[in-house]
């Protein structure tokens, strides 16, 4: 059962990686990167590493994606601050 789940998660992260290669928009690239991090955190749980899984879920999937999107917003406005 765990083998089945982990196989599905590996398929999910590889698909997320391919989306981030072939997507034209940068935003979907970044979102699929967050999806890859979330899938990797699930794999860490199946690999008997709950500490690493909780860290990756909080940092890789949460904060890292958020910081990316904030920096992107900053660039698209060209420094004129009418959105954050």
């Amino acid at each position: 059962m765990i083998t089945l789940f982990s196989t599905l998660l590996v398929i999910l992260i590889v698909a997320g990686g391919f989306v981030s290669i072939f997507s034209k928009k940068l935003l979907s690239s970044v979102i699929s990167m967050g999806l890859v991090s979330l899938g990797v955190s699930g794999l860490f749980f199946f690999l008997q590493a709950p500490d690493v899984a909780i860290t990756e879920a909080a940092i890789g999937a949460g904060l890292s994606t958020a910081i990316f999107i904030i920096a992107m917003k900053k660039i698209q406005k060209g420094g004129t601050s009418d959105d954050e």
Partner: peptide, 24 residues
């Protein structure tokens, strides 16, 4: 999470990241 770091999964690093996401 960071007070129970020696008993349950977690610890200082994920606890700090969770607090930072709350501030976000």
């Amino acid at each position: 999470v960071f007070i129970h770091g020696h008993l349950t999964p977690g610890g200082g690093f994920p606890g700090g990241a969770i607090i930072a996401s709350g501030i976000l």
